[in-house]
């Protein structure tokens, strides 16, 4: 079934898109979006290769765990962004930002 590989490639593409955006953009909200999309990319590779004639439930469980971890991290990050803005006036990291 070719769609498995198709989705895996889409997953790889999402991972890379997210990585690029994480490094390039300075606004913290965009970085959070980028990380979430990177995560979706990894999950997609994981589940795509697990589908087929006998779907493997372990990757499904891994992805559900991953989604919950991602929302926890995003919530923490968003609350931090608000505090950073309150203290520094900007929702960005200082000049020597994430490479």
């Amino acid at each position: 079934m070719n769609n498995i590989y198709l989705y895996s490639i889409v997953g790889a593409g999402l991972f890379t898109l997210g990585l690029y955006a994480l490094i390039s953009y300075r606004h913290l909200l965009r970085k959070i979006l980028a990380l979430n999309i990177m995560g979706s990319g990894v999950f997609l590779i994981l589940v795509a290769l697990a589908s087929g004639e006998t779907p493997d439930p372990v990757p499904h469980a891994m992805v559900i765990t991953g989604i919950v971890v991602a929302v926890s991290a995003s919530a923490l990050a968003l609350a931090l962004v608000l505090r950073v803005q309150a203290e520094t006036g900007k929702a960005e990291l200082p000049e020597e930002s994430l490479e």
């Binding site: 909200l29 979006l33 779907p55 929302v71 968003l78 609350a79 608000l82 929702a91």
Partner: peptide, 29 residues
């Protein structure tokens, strides 16, 4: 991809709740 459990979790948590959190934060920013 035959993963309905994941689909539900993604729709509710990944898209819904994360989206709500993002929008709320943006509004506050």
């Amino acid at each position: 991809l035959d993963a309905p459990d994941v689909a539900m979790a993604e729709a509710a948590i990944g898209a819904g709740l994360t989206g709500a959190l993002l929008l709320a934060t943006l509004a506050r920013l």
